[in-house]
């Protein structure tokens, strides 16, 4: 046991005592395994530091150069030919094996994909949405429809659905007189109903006026004689004969979903199709909400 060894042991002892003192003064709970492992780690570092220092300082003091020199030297500084340490050799082999795994399996099959993550998120969300809202009751649909309306529809139709003074369709009534007159004058073939295109000019002059007033007034009371031109497609009650033609008396699920699917160009301007941006349940909820607008 030489002086160096004693100094090293003393140094390690000081570190260990310091560690214990800190543990003690901070009331650290050693029954917590993490704290215990951390303390053992700190002591191990103290011991290793002392041991390794002793080994190499001793070696520097006593070692003499020996062995076979490599051929080249750098400005007079030579290098011995040493065996590769086994630790290094195994690490190198391990790296090669990992490299092969990464090349053939890791990168091509297990690489992170942002889009993959997105697809999983969507699938998970849709499954959850379906399980909660598949058989939603009317009140839930109306609430969903209202929040959807505020995000998707309100920028054009207004937060109350009133169409912002004629900038877009007003959902508080079915149709305005001007809108009815426009459709009568121009016909319509945009929504893909089984009855097909409505020709332009089915009525004109006073007849058209009478029809427009009747429809815009909510189809109350006696229908004007001219309304007969409309009934063959839209029905006596204007409800579209069970989905054959648009319901002009009130909003129903079909007309809302047809307009969302096809978009619409009319008297007030054009509306783009929203089909790809909404799910069937969302479309149902929108029509549930729109029906409540007064």
């Amino acid at each position: 046991m030489n002086g160096l060894m004693i100094k090293a042991l003393a140094f390690a002892a000081v570190l260990i005592i310091a560690t214990l003192a800190v543990v003690n003064s901070m009331n650290i709970d050693l029954s917590d395994s993490i704290n215990m492992i951390t303390m053992i780690g700190a002591i191990a570092i103290a011991v290793l530091t002392a041991g390794v220092s002793v080994k190499y300082i001793n070696q520097m003091k006593t070692d003499t150069a020996s062995g076979e020199l490599a051929e080249e030297n750098w400005d007079g500084i030579g290098e011995y030919k040493n065996e590769l340490p086994s630790g290094w050799a195994f690490s190198f082999l391990g790296t090669m094996i990992w490299g092969l795994w990464y090349w053939f399996i890791g990168y091509p099959l297990n690489a992170f994909s942002q889009i993959g993550q997105y697809n999983e998120e969507v699938l998970e969300y849709n499954a959850k949405f379906d399980s909660v809202y598949k058989n939603a009751d009317e009140a839930t649909l109306q609430a969903m429809g209202e929040s959807l309306f505020l995000v998707k529809c309100a920028p054009c139709h207004g937060e109350t659905g009133d169409g912002l003074s004629g900038k877009a369709h007003d959902f508080t009534t079915r149709m305005s007189k001007d809108q009815v007159l426009y459709v009568i004058a121009n016909g319509s073939d945009q929504l893909g109903y089984p009855m097909g295109a409505m020709p332009a000019g089915m009525a004109s002059g006073d007849d058209a006026e009478a029809i427009a007033t009747f429809i815009a007034g909510g189809m109350k009371g006696e229908a004007p004689v001219a309304f007969a031109a409309c009934t063959s497609c839209h029905g006596e009650d204007g409800k579209g004969m069970g989905g054959m033609a648009p319901n002009i008396a009130e909003y129903d699920d079909l007309i809302i979903s047809k307009i969302l699917e096809h978009g619409k160009k009319g008297k007030l301007g054009s509306m783009p199709a929203f089909k790809t941006m909404l799910t069937p349940v969302q479309i149902k909820s929108l029509s549930a909400y729109i029906k409540t607008l007064k």
Binding site: P155, C156, E159, K167, P272
Partner: peptide
Amino acid sequence: GNYRTTDWHENHMWDPKSVVP
């Protein structure tokens, strides 16, 4: 371009609060 139209942009650029309060 998928969900706004020419006339909407016209209203909006002239007075954004007229369409989005």
